[in-house]
C-alpha cells in the first residue's frame, strides 16, 4: 500500500513538473536574432502592417499623434477589461530599456522580459509568424518614436482569468505558428498570407472563437460576433466577399466600399493603418483573400 502511494505521488510530481515545463513561458532564441541590424524605414512598414497604433496610441489620435504609443486603450471583452500598455521608447514607463530579444519574446512568444505570459489580447499568436528581420526593423522604427511617461495600468480581470500561469495551457492549445492557407501560392499571395495571417492579425477578429478564446481555424475569416461589444464581424472569405481585388485594395487604402459607402466601426481604424502601406501590400492582401477557402 505504501509503495503504491509512493509511486502515485512520484507520478503526480512528474506529471506536475511536465505540465509546468510544457506551459512555461518561452523566450526568444538569441541565435535567431544574432547579427541582425534593424532598418527604421522598413520597420515603419512593419509597424503599419502590424496595426500597433490601433491599441497602443490613444483612440482619438490622428496623424502624428498615432506615433505616441502611450497605451491606455481599454479593450472590454467577455474575459474582462484589458488595458493596452505603454510601448513608447520611454525607458521607465515604455519599452526603451528592452533588448531585441525582449521584443522578439513578446511578439513571437507572448512572453514578457520578466518571464511572464502575456494575455492573447496582444495578438502574439499571429505575430508569431513575423520574420526575425521584421522584428529587428520594427525595433529600429519604434526607437525613433517619441517617448511617453504615462504609467501602465493593470488589466481588470476576475478569477480565473487573472491567473497568468494558466495562459501557458492556453498557448499550448492554441499551438505554434502554422499557415492556414497552404498549397501553391504566388509571391504576392505569400506576401498577402504573411500580412493577413501574420502581422495584420486579421483572423483575431474575423475568425470566431470558442469559449476558451481559441480561434475556430476551420472557419477561417468567416466572421463572427464582435469580441469588443455589439454587432458582428463580417465573413471575408470568397463565399461572401465578392469584391474584385482592386475593390479590396481600394477599401484598404481609402475605406471606400465598391458602392462608396465608407468603412465604419473598428475597421475605420484598421484602414488608418493599411492606408499607410505601399499599394503592392494592399494588392497582396487582396490576392491572398481570393485564395482563402469560401465558407458560408
Amino acid at each position: 500500500m505504501r509503495r503504491i502511494l509512493t509511486v502515485g505521488l512520484a507520478l503526480l510530481l512528474v506529471a506536475g513538473a511536465a505540465g509546468l515545463w510544457l506551459t512555461r513561458p518561452v523566450t526568444s532564441d538569441p541565435a535567431t536574432l544574432a547579427g541582425l541590424t534593424g532598418d527604421a524605414g522598413r520597420g515603419e512598414r512593419v509597424f503599419w502592417a502590424g496595426g500597433c497604433a490601433s491599441c497602443h496610441a490613444a483612440r482619438d489620435a490622428r496623424g502624428e499623434a498615432r506615433l505616441v504609443l502611450s497605451g491606455g486603450l481599454r479593450l472590454t471583452t467577455d474575459f474582462g477589461t484589458f488595458v493596452a500598455p505603454n510601448i513608447s521608447p520611454d525607458p521607465t514607463h515604455g519599452i526603451g530599456a528592452w533588448s531585441l530579444e525582449d521584443l522578439d519574446s513578446a511578439l513571437r512568444h507572448g512572453t514578457s522580459p520578466e518571464g511572464q505570459h502575456y494575455y492573447p489580447s496582444f495578438p502574439y499568436t499571429s505575430y508569431a509568424h513575423a520574420t526575425p528581420q521584421d522584428v529587428a526593423d520594427l525595433r529600429a522604427f519604434l526607437d525613433t518614436l517619441p517617448p511617453s511617461d504615462r504609467p501602465n495600468e493593470p488589466h481588470e480581470l476576475g478569477f480565473p482569468y487573472n491567473q497568468r500561469m494558466l495562459l501557458g495551457g492556453w498557448k499550448l492549445l492554441a499551438g505554434g505558428p502554422s499557415w492556414i492557407v497552404e498549397g501553391d501560392l504566388s509571391t504576392a499571395e505569400e506576401r498577402g498570407r504573411y500580412l493577413v495571417e501574420g502581422l495584420g492579425h486579421c483572423g483575431e477578429c474575423h475568425t470566431a472563437r470558442n469559449a476558451l478564446g481559441l480561434r475556430d481555424t476551420g472557419r477561417w475569416l468567416a466572421g463572427g460576433p464582435n469580441p469588443e461589444g455589439r454587432g458582428t464581424i463580417p465573413n471575408i472569405t470568397p463565399a461572401r466577399l465578392d469584391w474584385s481585388e482592386g475593390d479590396i485594395a481600394e477599401y484598404l487604402s481609402s475605406g471606400f466600399t465598391p458602392e462608396y459607402d465608407s468603412a465604419g466601426g473598428q475597421m475605420a481604424d484598421v484602414v488608418r493603418n493599411t492606408g499607410q502601406l505601399p499599394d503592392e501590400d494592399r494588392r497582396a492582401i487582396a490576392a491572398y483573400l481570393k485564395k482563402v477557402p469560401g465558407i458560408e
Partner: peptide, 13 residues
C-alpha cells in the same frame, strides 16, 4: 481619395 475616405470614416466610426 485616402483623405476623403478618412474624412467619411471618422464620422462613421
Amino acid at each position: 481619395m485616402r483623405d476623403v475616405g478618412a474624412g467619411c470614416g471618422s464620422c462613421h466610426e
